[in-house]
Design a protein around this nucleic acid. Structure first.
Length: 471
RNA sequence: GGCCCGGUGGGUGAAUGGCUUAGCCAGCGGACUGCAAAUCCGUUUAUGCCGGUUCGAUUCCGGCCCGGGCCUCCA
Protein backbone atom coordinates (compact mmCIF):
# COMPACT_ATOMS: atom_id res chain seq x y z
CA UNK A 1 0.00 0.00 0.00
CA UNK A 2 1.30 3.40 -0.90
CA UNK A 3 2.23 5.77 1.90
CA UNK A 4 1.90 8.72 -0.43
CA UNK A 5 -0.60 11.31 0.75
CA UNK A 6 -1.88 13.98 -1.62
CA UNK A 7 -4.24 16.88 -1.10
CA UNK A 8 -7.32 16.33 -3.20
CA UNK A 9 -9.20 19.48 -4.16
CA UNK A 10 -12.31 17.39 -4.80
CA UNK A 11 -12.56 16.33 -1.16
CA UNK A 12 -10.53 19.18 0.34
CA UNK A 13 -8.44 16.68 2.26
CA UNK A 14 -5.09 14.98 2.23
CA UNK A 15 -5.74 11.40 1.21
CA UNK A 16 -3.69 8.28 0.85
CA UNK A 17 -3.11 7.85 -2.86
CA UNK A 18 -4.41 4.62 -4.35
CA UNK A 19 -4.09 4.12 -8.09
CA UNK A 20 -7.15 2.85 -9.96
CA UNK A 21 -5.02 0.19 -11.61
CA UNK A 22 -2.43 -1.41 -9.31
CA UNK A 23 1.07 -0.19 -10.04
CA UNK A 24 0.02 2.35 -12.61
CA UNK A 25 -0.99 6.01 -12.55
CA UNK A 26 -2.63 8.13 -15.21
CA UNK A 27 -2.22 11.91 -15.01
CA UNK A 28 -3.63 14.69 -17.10
CA UNK A 29 -2.16 18.17 -16.71
CA UNK A 30 -3.65 21.35 -18.03
CA UNK A 31 -0.88 22.73 -20.19
CA UNK A 32 -0.05 26.02 -21.81
CA UNK A 33 -2.02 28.20 -24.16
CA UNK A 34 0.63 28.93 -26.74
CA UNK A 35 -0.05 32.43 -27.95
CA UNK A 36 2.66 33.93 -25.71
CA UNK A 37 5.72 32.83 -23.77
CA UNK A 38 5.13 31.00 -20.51
CA UNK A 39 6.01 33.23 -17.57
CA UNK A 40 7.56 32.16 -14.28
CA UNK A 41 4.14 31.73 -12.71
CA UNK A 42 3.06 29.37 -15.48
CA UNK A 43 6.26 27.42 -15.07
CA UNK A 44 5.49 26.88 -11.41
CA UNK A 45 2.58 24.70 -12.49
CA UNK A 46 4.88 22.44 -14.48
CA UNK A 47 7.46 22.25 -11.72
CA UNK A 48 4.68 21.20 -9.40
CA UNK A 49 3.51 18.45 -11.72
CA UNK A 50 7.08 17.31 -12.19
CA UNK A 51 7.52 17.02 -8.44
CA UNK A 52 4.30 15.00 -8.29
CA UNK A 53 5.44 12.72 -11.07
CA UNK A 54 8.80 12.14 -9.41
CA UNK A 55 7.05 11.27 -6.16
CA UNK A 56 4.86 8.74 -7.97
CA UNK A 57 7.84 7.21 -9.75
CA UNK A 58 9.67 6.95 -6.44
CA UNK A 59 6.74 4.89 -5.17
CA UNK A 60 7.52 2.44 -7.93
CA UNK A 61 4.46 3.31 -9.99
CA UNK A 62 4.36 3.40 -13.77
CA UNK A 63 3.19 6.84 -14.79
CA UNK A 64 1.33 7.79 -17.94
CA UNK A 65 1.37 11.56 -18.20
CA UNK A 66 -0.60 13.59 -20.73
CA UNK A 67 -0.27 17.35 -21.11
CA UNK A 68 -2.43 19.32 -23.47
CA UNK A 69 -1.31 22.22 -25.59
CA UNK A 70 -4.01 24.76 -26.25
CA UNK A 71 -3.15 25.94 -29.72
CA UNK A 72 -6.56 27.15 -30.73
CA UNK A 73 -7.51 30.60 -29.71
CA UNK A 74 -9.98 31.32 -27.06
CA UNK A 75 -11.29 34.59 -25.93
CA UNK A 76 -9.59 37.61 -24.60
CA UNK A 77 -12.12 39.19 -22.34
CA UNK A 78 -15.72 38.63 -21.45
CA UNK A 79 -17.29 35.26 -21.02
CA UNK A 80 -17.64 33.62 -24.40
CA UNK A 81 -17.26 36.91 -26.19
CA UNK A 82 -14.42 39.05 -27.35
CA UNK A 83 -11.34 38.71 -29.42
CA UNK A 84 -9.46 35.51 -29.94
CA UNK A 85 -5.98 35.39 -28.44
CA UNK A 86 -4.39 33.22 -31.07
CA UNK A 87 -5.90 35.17 -33.92
CA UNK A 88 -4.87 38.46 -32.37
CA UNK A 89 -1.30 37.30 -31.77
CA UNK A 90 -1.17 36.20 -35.38
CA UNK A 91 -2.48 39.53 -36.60
CA UNK A 92 0.01 41.48 -34.56
CA UNK A 93 3.05 39.55 -35.63
CA UNK A 94 2.05 38.89 -39.21
CA UNK A 95 2.70 35.20 -38.69
CA UNK A 96 0.07 32.51 -39.03
CA UNK A 97 -1.72 31.23 -35.97
CA UNK A 98 -0.05 27.88 -36.55
CA UNK A 99 3.38 29.52 -36.63
CA UNK A 100 2.68 31.39 -33.41
CA UNK A 101 1.59 28.19 -31.74
CA UNK A 102 4.64 26.31 -32.97
CA UNK A 103 6.98 29.03 -31.76
CA UNK A 104 5.65 29.21 -28.22
CA UNK A 105 5.18 25.48 -27.95
CA UNK A 106 8.86 25.09 -28.78
CA UNK A 107 9.86 27.68 -26.19
CA UNK A 108 7.80 25.97 -23.54
CA UNK A 109 9.28 22.56 -24.30
CA UNK A 110 12.73 24.12 -24.12
CA UNK A 111 11.91 25.72 -20.76
CA UNK A 112 10.80 22.34 -19.48
CA UNK A 113 14.09 20.80 -20.51
CA UNK A 114 16.10 23.58 -18.90
CA UNK A 115 14.14 23.04 -15.69
CA UNK A 116 14.76 19.30 -15.90
CA UNK A 117 11.08 18.43 -16.09
CA UNK A 118 10.56 14.81 -17.05
CA UNK A 119 9.05 14.44 -20.49
CA UNK A 120 5.34 13.71 -20.69
CA UNK A 121 4.22 10.63 -22.56
CA UNK A 122 1.80 12.62 -24.69
CA UNK A 123 1.68 16.29 -25.61
CA UNK A 124 -1.69 16.64 -27.27
CA UNK A 125 -2.78 19.64 -29.28
CA UNK A 126 -6.32 20.89 -29.33
CA UNK A 127 -6.24 21.50 -33.08
CA UNK A 128 -5.35 17.86 -33.71
CA UNK A 129 -8.34 16.55 -31.73
CA UNK A 130 -11.23 18.48 -33.20
CA UNK A 131 -13.21 15.29 -34.04
CA UNK A 132 -12.98 14.08 -30.44
CA UNK A 133 -14.26 17.41 -29.21
CA UNK A 134 -17.15 17.44 -31.67
CA UNK A 135 -17.98 13.88 -30.67
CA UNK A 136 -18.23 14.82 -26.99
CA UNK A 137 -20.37 17.83 -27.81
CA UNK A 138 -22.66 15.56 -29.84
CA UNK A 139 -22.98 13.16 -26.93
CA UNK A 140 -23.95 16.01 -24.66
CA UNK A 141 -26.43 17.30 -27.20
CA UNK A 142 -27.96 13.84 -27.60
CA UNK A 143 -28.43 13.61 -23.86
CA UNK A 144 -30.17 16.96 -23.72
CA UNK A 145 -27.48 18.92 -21.90
CA UNK A 146 -27.14 21.61 -24.54
CA UNK A 147 -28.96 24.44 -26.24
CA UNK A 148 -28.15 26.41 -29.32
CA UNK A 149 -27.72 30.18 -29.48
CA UNK A 150 -26.85 32.39 -32.41
CA UNK A 151 -23.18 32.28 -31.61
CA UNK A 152 -22.71 28.73 -30.49
CA UNK A 153 -23.73 25.52 -28.78
CA UNK A 154 -23.99 25.92 -25.02
CA UNK A 155 -23.87 23.59 -22.03
CA UNK A 156 -26.89 24.04 -19.77
CA UNK A 157 -25.40 23.88 -16.28
CA UNK A 158 -28.85 23.62 -14.68
CA UNK A 159 -29.11 20.12 -16.16
CA UNK A 160 -26.09 18.99 -14.17
CA UNK A 161 -27.07 19.12 -10.49
CA UNK A 162 -23.54 18.61 -9.17
CA UNK A 163 -22.30 21.65 -11.07
CA UNK A 164 -21.50 23.77 -8.01
CA UNK A 165 -20.08 20.96 -5.88
CA UNK A 166 -16.48 20.74 -6.99
CA UNK A 167 -15.63 24.39 -6.49
CA UNK A 168 -18.26 24.81 -3.75
CA UNK A 169 -19.74 27.63 -5.71
CA UNK A 170 -22.50 29.84 -4.42
CA UNK A 171 -24.16 30.38 -7.77
CA UNK A 172 -26.91 32.60 -6.44
CA UNK A 173 -24.46 34.79 -4.58
CA UNK A 174 -22.22 35.05 -7.61
CA UNK A 175 -25.07 35.98 -9.87
CA UNK A 176 -25.98 38.82 -7.54
CA UNK A 177 -22.56 40.38 -7.88
CA UNK A 178 -21.80 39.58 -11.49
CA UNK A 179 -19.36 42.16 -12.77
CA UNK A 180 -19.89 41.94 -16.46
CA UNK A 181 -22.42 41.57 -19.16
CA UNK A 182 -22.85 38.23 -20.80
CA UNK A 183 -23.85 36.55 -24.00
CA UNK A 184 -27.48 37.25 -24.81
CA UNK A 185 -29.70 34.24 -24.40
CA UNK A 186 -27.68 32.25 -21.92
CA UNK A 187 -30.01 30.54 -19.51
CA UNK A 188 -27.67 30.72 -16.52
CA UNK A 189 -24.53 32.81 -16.07
CA UNK A 190 -22.24 29.79 -15.69
CA UNK A 191 -23.43 28.17 -18.93
CA UNK A 192 -20.53 27.92 -21.35
CA UNK A 193 -19.87 27.28 -25.02
CA UNK A 194 -19.05 23.82 -26.32
CA UNK A 195 -18.76 25.06 -29.87
CA UNK A 196 -18.51 28.62 -31.13
CA UNK A 197 -19.47 29.89 -34.56
CA UNK A 198 -17.13 32.15 -36.44
CA UNK A 199 -18.50 35.69 -36.40
CA UNK A 200 -20.43 36.52 -39.58
CA UNK A 201 -18.18 37.89 -42.27
CA UNK A 202 -15.00 37.13 -40.34
CA UNK A 203 -12.54 34.73 -41.92
CA UNK A 204 -10.68 33.02 -39.11
CA UNK A 205 -7.41 31.21 -39.59
CA UNK A 206 -8.60 28.49 -37.26
CA UNK A 207 -12.05 27.15 -38.00
CA UNK A 208 -13.61 23.80 -38.72
CA UNK A 209 -16.89 22.34 -39.88
CA UNK A 210 -19.20 20.86 -37.28
CA UNK A 211 -22.77 19.55 -37.11
CA UNK A 212 -23.81 22.98 -35.84
CA UNK A 213 -21.90 25.10 -38.30
CA UNK A 214 -18.41 26.28 -39.10
CA UNK A 215 -16.48 27.50 -36.09
CA UNK A 216 -14.17 26.40 -33.36
CA UNK A 217 -14.39 24.51 -30.07
CA UNK A 218 -15.04 26.07 -26.70
CA UNK A 219 -12.10 26.22 -24.39
CA UNK A 220 -13.11 23.64 -21.82
CA UNK A 221 -14.04 20.79 -24.08
CA UNK A 222 -10.54 20.04 -25.35
CA UNK A 223 -9.42 18.85 -21.92
CA UNK A 224 -12.43 16.61 -21.43
CA UNK A 225 -12.12 15.15 -24.90
CA UNK A 226 -8.37 14.62 -24.98
CA UNK A 227 -7.93 13.32 -21.44
CA UNK A 228 -10.58 10.70 -21.99
CA UNK A 229 -9.13 9.88 -25.40
CA UNK A 230 -5.68 9.14 -23.97
CA UNK A 231 -6.38 8.03 -20.42
CA UNK A 232 -9.82 6.47 -20.50
CA UNK A 233 -13.03 7.67 -18.96
CA UNK A 234 -11.84 7.22 -15.37
CA UNK A 235 -8.30 8.17 -14.40
CA UNK A 236 -6.23 9.03 -11.34
CA UNK A 237 -4.96 12.58 -11.34
CA UNK A 238 -5.73 15.89 -12.97
CA UNK A 239 -3.60 18.97 -12.26
CA UNK A 240 -3.68 22.68 -12.90
CA UNK A 241 -3.46 26.07 -11.27
CA UNK A 242 -5.94 27.12 -8.57
CA UNK A 243 -7.47 29.61 -10.98
CA UNK A 244 -8.91 26.66 -12.88
CA UNK A 245 -11.00 25.37 -9.99
CA UNK A 246 -14.14 27.51 -10.30
CA UNK A 247 -14.51 27.63 -14.07
CA UNK A 248 -12.32 25.48 -16.24
CA UNK A 249 -12.22 22.36 -14.11
CA UNK A 250 -15.78 22.79 -12.96
CA UNK A 251 -16.82 22.86 -16.61
CA UNK A 252 -14.61 19.95 -17.54
CA UNK A 253 -16.22 17.88 -14.83
CA UNK A 254 -19.70 18.87 -15.98
CA UNK A 255 -18.95 17.88 -19.58
CA UNK A 256 -17.21 14.63 -18.79
CA UNK A 257 -19.44 13.36 -16.03
CA UNK A 258 -22.58 14.30 -17.93
CA UNK A 259 -21.27 12.96 -21.21
CA UNK A 260 -19.97 9.65 -19.89
CA UNK A 261 -22.30 9.12 -16.91
CA UNK A 262 -19.39 9.02 -14.49
CA UNK A 263 -18.73 10.11 -10.97
CA UNK A 264 -16.08 10.74 -10.08
CA UNK A 265 -14.55 11.13 -13.49
CA UNK A 266 -11.12 11.86 -11.98
CA UNK A 267 -10.19 10.55 -8.54
CA UNK A 268 -7.74 13.20 -7.41
CA UNK A 269 -7.56 16.84 -8.46
CA UNK A 270 -4.49 18.79 -7.51
CA UNK A 271 -3.89 22.51 -7.87
CA UNK A 272 -0.85 24.69 -7.40
CA UNK A 273 -1.13 28.14 -5.85
CA UNK A 274 0.14 31.18 -7.65
CA UNK A 275 3.42 32.99 -7.74
CA UNK A 276 3.20 36.55 -6.48
CA UNK A 277 5.31 39.30 -7.96
CA UNK A 278 5.53 42.05 -5.43
CA UNK A 279 2.03 42.01 -4.06
CA UNK A 280 0.33 40.80 -7.18
CA UNK A 281 -0.02 37.61 -9.09
CA UNK A 282 2.39 37.20 -11.95
CA UNK A 283 -0.05 37.72 -14.73
CA UNK A 284 -0.14 38.02 -18.45
CA UNK A 285 -3.04 40.38 -18.40
CA UNK A 286 -1.27 42.78 -16.06
CA UNK A 287 1.86 42.73 -18.14
CA UNK A 288 3.96 40.88 -15.59
CA UNK A 289 5.50 38.52 -18.05
CA UNK A 290 8.76 37.53 -16.42
CA UNK A 291 10.11 34.55 -18.27
CA UNK A 292 12.94 32.12 -17.70
CA UNK A 293 15.18 33.99 -20.10
CA UNK A 294 14.84 37.11 -17.97
CA UNK A 295 16.58 35.17 -15.23
CA UNK A 296 19.19 33.78 -17.58
CA UNK A 297 19.91 37.32 -18.78
CA UNK A 298 20.81 38.14 -15.19
CA UNK A 299 23.20 35.25 -15.00
CA UNK A 300 20.81 33.02 -13.07
CA UNK A 301 20.87 29.31 -13.80
CA UNK A 302 17.39 28.07 -14.83
CA UNK A 303 17.73 25.30 -12.27
CA UNK A 304 18.09 27.96 -9.58
CA UNK A 305 14.46 28.74 -10.36
CA UNK A 306 13.62 25.11 -9.69
CA UNK A 307 15.48 25.43 -6.39
CA UNK A 308 13.48 28.57 -5.70
CA UNK A 309 10.27 26.66 -6.37
CA UNK A 310 11.26 23.82 -4.05
CA UNK A 311 11.72 26.22 -1.15
CA UNK A 312 7.96 26.75 -0.80
CA UNK A 313 5.05 24.33 -0.72
CA UNK A 314 3.11 24.06 -3.98
CA UNK A 315 -0.21 24.80 -2.26
CA UNK A 316 1.00 28.10 -0.86
CA UNK A 317 1.35 31.31 -2.74
CA UNK A 318 5.02 32.09 -3.23
CA UNK A 319 6.55 35.54 -3.38
CA UNK A 320 8.87 36.26 -6.22
CA UNK A 321 11.43 39.04 -6.10
CA UNK A 322 14.84 39.30 -7.66
CA UNK A 323 16.37 39.56 -4.19
CA UNK A 324 14.83 36.24 -3.24
CA UNK A 325 15.71 34.76 -6.61
CA UNK A 326 19.35 35.76 -6.15
CA UNK A 327 19.26 34.32 -2.64
CA UNK A 328 17.98 31.06 -4.06
CA UNK A 329 20.67 31.12 -6.73
CA UNK A 330 23.30 31.47 -4.01
CA UNK A 331 21.81 28.59 -2.08
CA UNK A 332 21.62 26.48 -5.21
CA UNK A 333 25.22 27.20 -6.10
CA UNK A 334 26.38 26.14 -2.63
CA UNK A 335 24.28 23.00 -2.70
CA UNK A 336 25.81 22.08 -6.05
CA UNK A 337 29.29 22.64 -4.65
CA UNK A 338 28.52 20.17 -1.90
CA UNK A 339 27.06 17.74 -4.44
CA UNK A 340 30.11 18.00 -6.69
CA UNK A 341 32.35 17.15 -3.78
CA UNK A 342 30.11 14.33 -2.58
CA UNK A 343 29.77 12.65 -5.93
CA UNK A 344 33.54 12.58 -6.41
CA UNK A 345 33.92 10.66 -3.13
CA UNK A 346 35.42 7.22 -3.58
CA UNK A 347 34.47 4.09 -1.70
CA UNK A 348 31.37 3.01 0.14
CA UNK A 349 29.59 4.33 3.24
CA UNK A 350 30.94 3.05 6.55
CA UNK A 351 28.82 0.23 8.01
CA UNK A 352 28.46 2.09 11.31
CA UNK A 353 26.87 5.11 9.60
CA UNK A 354 24.28 2.98 7.83
CA UNK A 355 21.61 3.75 10.43
CA UNK A 356 22.16 7.48 10.17
CA UNK A 357 22.11 7.26 6.40
CA UNK A 358 18.86 5.33 6.30
CA UNK A 359 17.33 7.71 8.81
CA UNK A 360 17.96 10.67 6.51
CA UNK A 361 16.70 8.75 3.51
CA UNK A 362 13.51 8.03 5.41
CA UNK A 363 13.11 11.65 6.45
CA UNK A 364 13.51 12.87 2.90
CA UNK A 365 10.95 10.57 1.35
CA UNK A 366 8.55 10.99 4.24
CA UNK A 367 8.52 14.70 3.45
CA UNK A 368 7.87 14.02 -0.24
CA UNK A 369 5.09 11.57 0.61
CA UNK A 370 3.43 14.13 2.82
CA UNK A 371 1.68 15.99 0.01
CA UNK A 372 4.95 16.81 -1.73
CA UNK A 373 6.49 18.81 1.09
CA UNK A 374 9.49 20.02 -0.86
CA UNK A 375 10.65 22.56 1.76
CA UNK A 376 11.03 19.80 4.30
CA UNK A 377 12.77 17.60 1.77
CA UNK A 378 15.17 20.46 1.11
CA UNK A 379 15.82 20.76 4.82
CA UNK A 380 16.92 17.12 4.89
CA UNK A 381 19.00 17.66 1.77
CA UNK A 382 20.88 20.51 3.42
CA UNK A 383 21.36 18.57 6.63
CA UNK A 384 23.00 15.81 4.60
CA UNK A 385 25.03 18.19 2.41
CA UNK A 386 26.47 20.04 5.37
CA UNK A 387 26.39 17.23 7.89
CA UNK A 388 29.06 14.90 9.17
CA UNK A 389 28.32 11.81 7.10
CA UNK A 390 31.19 10.45 5.04
CA UNK A 391 31.64 11.46 1.42
CA UNK A 392 30.34 8.14 0.08
CA UNK A 393 27.29 8.34 2.37
CA UNK A 394 26.53 11.85 1.16
CA UNK A 395 27.01 10.69 -2.41
CA UNK A 396 24.55 7.85 -1.98
CA UNK A 397 21.93 10.06 -0.36
CA UNK A 398 22.21 13.08 -2.63
CA UNK A 399 21.99 10.91 -5.73
CA UNK A 400 18.90 9.28 -4.23
CA UNK A 401 17.31 12.64 -3.36
CA UNK A 402 18.04 13.86 -6.87
CA UNK A 403 15.32 11.53 -8.16
CA UNK A 404 12.81 13.66 -6.29
CA UNK A 405 14.42 17.06 -6.62
CA UNK A 406 15.59 17.22 -10.23
CA UNK A 407 18.17 19.84 -9.35
CA UNK A 408 21.05 18.20 -11.16
CA UNK A 409 22.87 17.09 -8.04
CA UNK A 410 24.08 14.19 -10.15
CA UNK A 411 25.72 16.08 -12.97
CA UNK A 412 25.51 19.89 -12.73
CA UNK A 413 28.39 22.22 -11.95
CA UNK A 414 27.95 25.48 -10.05
CA UNK A 415 27.74 28.45 -12.38
CA UNK A 416 29.95 29.93 -13.50
CA UNK A 417 31.94 26.75 -13.83
CA UNK A 418 34.79 28.21 -15.85
CA UNK A 419 36.07 31.58 -16.80
CA UNK A 420 35.27 32.25 -20.44
CA UNK A 421 38.24 32.94 -22.70
CA UNK A 422 39.11 36.62 -22.94
CA UNK A 423 42.72 37.54 -23.83
CA UNK A 424 42.51 41.05 -22.41
CA UNK A 425 41.28 39.88 -19.02
CA UNK A 426 43.69 37.00 -18.97
CA UNK A 427 46.56 39.41 -19.60
CA UNK A 428 45.41 41.58 -16.70
CA UNK A 429 45.15 38.55 -14.45
CA UNK A 430 48.66 37.53 -15.45
CA UNK A 431 49.90 41.04 -14.56
CA UNK A 432 48.17 40.73 -11.22
CA UNK A 433 49.66 37.31 -10.60
CA UNK A 434 53.13 38.69 -11.30
CA UNK A 435 52.52 41.65 -9.01
CA UNK A 436 51.41 39.38 -6.22
CA UNK A 437 54.42 37.17 -6.75
CA UNK A 438 56.71 40.14 -6.15
CA UNK A 439 54.46 41.16 -3.25
CA UNK A 440 53.44 44.40 -4.96
CA UNK A 441 49.94 44.21 -3.53
CA UNK A 442 49.08 47.80 -4.41
CA UNK A 443 49.51 47.02 -8.09
CA UNK A 444 47.67 43.72 -7.75
CA UNK A 445 44.74 45.34 -5.96
CA UNK A 446 44.58 48.13 -8.54
CA UNK A 447 44.01 45.54 -11.25
CA UNK A 448 41.39 43.81 -9.17
CA UNK A 449 39.60 47.08 -8.45
CA UNK A 450 39.65 48.05 -12.11
CA UNK A 451 38.07 44.75 -13.09
CA UNK A 452 35.52 45.02 -10.34
CA UNK A 453 34.60 48.47 -11.65
CA UNK A 454 33.55 46.83 -14.91
CA UNK A 455 31.60 44.15 -13.08
CA UNK A 456 34.11 41.34 -12.96
CA UNK A 457 34.80 39.48 -9.72
CA UNK A 458 38.01 37.58 -9.16
CA UNK A 459 38.34 34.45 -7.09
CA UNK A 460 41.73 33.11 -6.05
CA UNK A 461 41.19 29.40 -5.69
CA UNK A 462 43.78 26.83 -4.89
CA UNK A 463 43.67 25.78 -8.54
CA UNK A 464 44.32 29.27 -9.86
CA UNK A 465 42.37 32.43 -10.54
CA UNK A 466 38.78 32.38 -11.75
CA UNK A 467 36.68 35.32 -12.76
CA UNK A 468 33.07 35.96 -13.56
CA UNK A 469 30.76 38.76 -14.50
CA UNK A 470 28.45 39.68 -11.69
CA UNK A 471 26.37 42.16 -13.62
C1' G B 1 -22.07 40.85 -3.70
C1' G B 2 -20.23 35.57 -3.34
C1' C B 3 -16.20 32.00 -2.82
C1' C B 4 -11.00 30.61 -1.57
C1' C B 5 -5.89 31.11 0.54
C1' G B 6 -2.70 33.53 3.81
C1' G B 7 -0.61 36.99 7.94
C1' U B 8 5.73 33.15 11.79
C1' G B 9 12.71 36.40 12.91
C1' G B 10 16.00 41.51 8.60
C1' G B 11 13.99 38.69 3.87
C1' U B 12 11.94 34.04 2.39
C1' G B 13 9.59 29.89 4.23
C1' A B 14 8.46 24.94 6.98
C1' A B 15 6.33 22.90 11.39
C1' U B 16 3.66 22.29 15.90
C1' G B 17 -2.05 21.83 21.58
C1' G B 18 3.16 21.59 26.01
C1' C B 19 9.31 18.93 24.18
C1' U B 20 15.49 23.28 21.71
C1' U B 21 9.46 26.65 16.47
C1' A B 22 13.10 23.93 10.56
C1' G B 23 15.98 25.06 6.29
C1' C B 24 17.85 28.75 2.91
C1' C B 25 19.52 33.97 2.14
C1' A B 26 21.21 38.26 4.69
C1' G B 27 23.74 40.14 9.29
C1' C B 28 27.44 39.24 13.06
C1' G B 29 31.88 36.34 14.91
C1' G B 30 35.72 32.87 13.49
C1' A B 31 38.87 29.81 9.99
C1' C B 32 41.32 30.52 5.35
C1' U B 33 43.77 34.86 2.54
C1' G B 34 49.11 39.70 1.81
C1' C B 35 44.01 42.03 1.92
C1' A B 36 39.68 40.52 -0.30
C1' A B 37 36.42 37.29 -2.92
C1' A B 38 34.75 32.34 -2.86
C1' U B 39 34.23 28.37 0.62
C1' C B 40 33.67 26.28 5.48
C1' C B 41 32.40 26.55 10.91
C1' G B 42 29.68 29.08 14.81
C1' U B 43 25.75 32.48 15.97
C1' U B 44 21.50 36.83 17.42
C1' U B 45 16.33 38.30 16.38
C1' A B 46 9.62 35.71 15.12
C1' U B 47 4.15 33.30 15.56
C1' G B 48 -1.07 40.57 13.07
C1' C B 49 -4.94 42.40 17.00
C1' C B 50 -9.04 41.09 20.53
C1' G B 51 -11.85 37.45 22.81
C1' G B 52 -13.15 32.04 23.65
C1' U B 53 -12.08 26.63 24.52
C1' U B 54 -8.02 24.30 27.44
C1' C B 55 -4.09 22.76 33.03
C1' G B 56 -1.60 24.90 28.68
C1' A B 57 -2.54 27.99 21.93
C1' U B 58 1.64 30.33 17.46
C1' U B 59 -1.33 25.85 16.53
C1' C B 60 -8.43 24.80 17.65
C1' C B 61 -13.03 28.30 17.49
C1' G B 62 -15.23 33.39 16.82
C1' G B 63 -14.64 38.62 15.69
C1' C B 64 -11.52 42.49 13.76
C1' C B 65 -7.55 44.48 10.79
C1' C B 66 -4.23 43.60 6.69
C1' G B 67 -2.39 41.01 2.09
C1' G B 68 -3.21 37.74 -2.18
C1' G B 69 -6.41 34.95 -5.52
C1' C B 70 -11.09 33.51 -8.12
C1' C B 71 -16.15 34.70 -9.82
C1' U B 72 -13.77 37.42 -17.06
C1' C B 73 -8.43 34.85 -20.77
C1' C B 74 -5.22 33.24 -16.81
C1' A B 75 -0.73 28.15 -13.83
Amino acid sequence: MSELFLYNTRTRRKERFEPIEAGRVRIYSCGPTVYAPQHLGNLRAYLFVDLLKRALLAEGLRVTHVINITDVGHLTDDADRGEDKMERAAERSGASAAAIAAKYTGQWLDDRKRLRCLEADVYCKATEHIPQQIELARRLEAKGYTYLLEDGLYFDTSKFPRYADFARLDLAGQAAGARIGDVAGKRQPPDFALWKFAAPGVQRQQEWDSPWGRGFPGWHIECSAMSVHYLGTHFDLHTGGVDHIPVHHTNEIAQSEAGFDLHPWVNVWMHNEHLKLGDEKVSKSKGHTLVLDDLVARGIDPLAYRYFFLQAHYRQQQSFSFDEMEAAATGYRRLLSAAVEARSAAGEPEPEERDALEYERGEFWAAVRDDLNAPRAMEVTWRVARGSLSGPAKRELLLDFERGLGLGLDNQQPQPADSPADPRIEALLEDRRAARARRDFAAADAIRDALRAEGIEIEDTKDGVRWRRVR
